[in-house]
């Protein structure tokens, strides 16, 4: 079984980001970039499936600027078999990425697409869902437990009430949540092997996909600072405030 793992190059989660002075976006000049942590979890899961003998080949794919090759090399060093970069310096919005991935899926014919539930830069949480819709495949989102066998995936989804377990027929798109696994770090021998693994580069035009943005960023702002809390004198007062002011009771 082939597994496709889309990975996105994003600002490293440790970086304290700053909004540009003109509010057009976040300043990403000279900041550390890494693989989106949720994609790392997806990649780890794919490798575990391969180690378990369920998956036979892992293909990492990324859409973005040439430097996204570094992110793909990281996936290869973790254990992916080969990689595809859909190279574009244009702004790629979730729908465009979903279309690009759909084109790759048609070409590669994987049984499973394992991807992060969202990227930590724009937090859109759309690409997986859109991809499943474009392909007409079943989907399971926010997956935090997973077993794959007999042409079917049993996925535990993290929903507000707890874990909802659903069965989806393959081929399917699964988007993974934080608690699915703890990704490994690439070992030194695998880092050295990664540079010898194939990495193909294609352009959106080669895939016949129009990536023109459908959405327009109007303005990016820092979140407002958290206001100081209130100290209450008694439980009674607390319950009262929860009822009247917070409106949660």
């Amino acid at each position: 079984m082939k597994v496709l793992v889309p990975v996105k190059r994003v600002v490293d989660y440790n970086v304290k980001i700053r909004v540009k002075a003109d509010r057009s976006g976040v300043d990403i000049a000279n900041v550390k970039m890494s693989m989106n942590p949720f994609d790392e979890i997806a990649c780890e899961q794919a490798i575990r499936l391969k180690e378990a003998g369920v998956a036979t080949e892992i293909i990492a794919v990324s859409a973005g600027e040439p430097k996204a090759q570094e992110t793909l090399r990281t996936a290869l060093a973790m254990g992916a078999d080969r990689a595809i970069l859909i190279e574009s310096t244009d702004e790629l919005q979730p729908l465009a990425v979903a279309k690009l991935l759909a084109a790759i899926v048609k070409k590669e014919d994987p049984q499973l697409v394992l991807m992060g539930k969202q990227a930590i830069d724009d937090d859109s949480n759309q690409t997986g869902q859109m991809l499943a819709a474009l392909l007409g495949w079943p989907q399971a989102t926010f997956v935090s437990r997973l077993t794959v066998a007999d042409g079917q995936a049993e996925a535990g989804r993290e929903v507000d009430e707890g874990i909802q377990t659903i069965a989806v027929k393959l081929p399917a798109v699964l988007t993974v949540d934080l608690r699915l696994n703890e990704p490994r770090y690439a070992s030194l021998p695998n880092i050295m092997k990664a540079k010898k693994k194939p990495l193909d580069v294609v352009k959106p035009a080669d895939l016949g996909v129009d990536v023109a943005p459908r959405l327009q960023y109007v303005q990016v702002e820092e979140p407002s600072a958290r206001k100081a809390g209130v100290k209450v004198g008694s439980v009674q007062e607390l319950v009262q405030k929860l009822k009247t002011e917070a409106g949660v009771l």
């Binding site: 570094e70 090399r73 690439a186 070992s187 030194l188 050295m192 990664a194 540079k195």
Partner: peptide, 18 residues
């Protein structure tokens, strides 16, 4: 190099975890 960057990442992760 890309390999050296990854090596630094791996070693840092090793130090923090192990």
């Amino acid at each position: 190099s890309g390999e050296q960057e990854m090596l630094v990442e791996t070693t840092r992760a090793f130090v923090e975890k192990e």
